[in-house]
Structure formats: C-alpha cells, structure tokens
C-alpha cells in the first residue's frame, strides 16, 4: 500500500479524537479522546519508520506509549479528585481559571 494511505488513516483517527475532545463535556470522554489522538500519532510514527525501514519510528511509539501511560494515570487521579471536590465531571463548570478581573478597575486615571 502507499505510504500516504497509512498516514491518511492516522490523520482520520487523529481528527476523530480531536472532535471528541472538542465536543464532549465529560472529562472521562475527553481523556478517552486524547488517548485516541495519541494512538493516531503513534501510528503515524510507526508508518514513517516502516517507510524508511528504520527502527526509530517504533522507538518513538514506545516513548509515546510510556507518556500515554503516565498521562492517563495522572489524568484519572485528577478526575477522581475533581469529582470529589466539585461533584461533577462537566468541564464547562470547571472554569476556575477564568479571567474575572474587571478591566475598568485597573484603568489608569
């Protein structure tokens, strides 16, 4: 098969994951979608490695795997903590970082 067809599959998977991140409000679904995206990125690496017949693509996939594993463990721990603190998993309500400063207050005379 042509190399671009593999990369096209990776791109499709990646964009599907992205859609998931963007449309879902539940934190768990967002994390799942992120996993999909990471997996797609790994697929692209492996495809590239196969294209050149080099081991580097697969080595990179290993690193992505390790990264995904730690990301998921920390992320899920955060999800649990958030659920305990806020009793919700809705990301639209977890917006404590919102810029609440009123611009009029700091206006220079």
């Amino acid at each position: 098969m042509a190399s671009y067809s593999v990369l096209a599959v990776a791109a499709i998977l990646f964009t599907l994951g992205l859609i998931g991140v963007l449309t879902r409000r539940n934190v768990i679904f967002i994390l799942i979608s992120v996993e999909v995206m990471l997996n797609a990125a790994g697929l692209a690496f492996v495809a590239a490695g196969a294209r050149w017949g080099q081991p580097d693509g697969q080595v990179m996939f290993l690193f992505i795997l390790a990264m995904a594993a730690s990301e998921v463990s920390v992320g899920l721990a955060l999800v649990m903590q958030v659920y305990h603190q806020h009793k919700t998993l809705d990301v639209t309500r977890l917006n404590v970082l919102k810029d609440d400063i009123d611009i009029q207050e700091i206006k220079v005379q």
Binding site: A8, F14, L18, I19, G53
Partner: peptide
C-alpha cells in the same frame, strides 16, 4: 462547529500528504 473545523484540518492534512512523495510500504519488518 468543532466538527467543521476539524474537517477542514483533516482536509488540509490529506492534501498535504497526497502532495508529498509517496512510496509503497511493504511489510518488510524491522
């Protein structure tokens, strides 16, 4: 909205991939 945006991204990616050089990949394992 997000889906349309992402579709645009996908279209761009695909165009870029098809434009680039493409070779046949065999299952020549490393």
């Amino acid at each position: 909205g997000p889906t349309i945006l992402t579709a645009i991204l996908l279209a761009e990616l695909l165009v870029l991939m098809i434009r680039g050089d493409s070779t046949t990949i065999t299952d020549q394992s490393v």
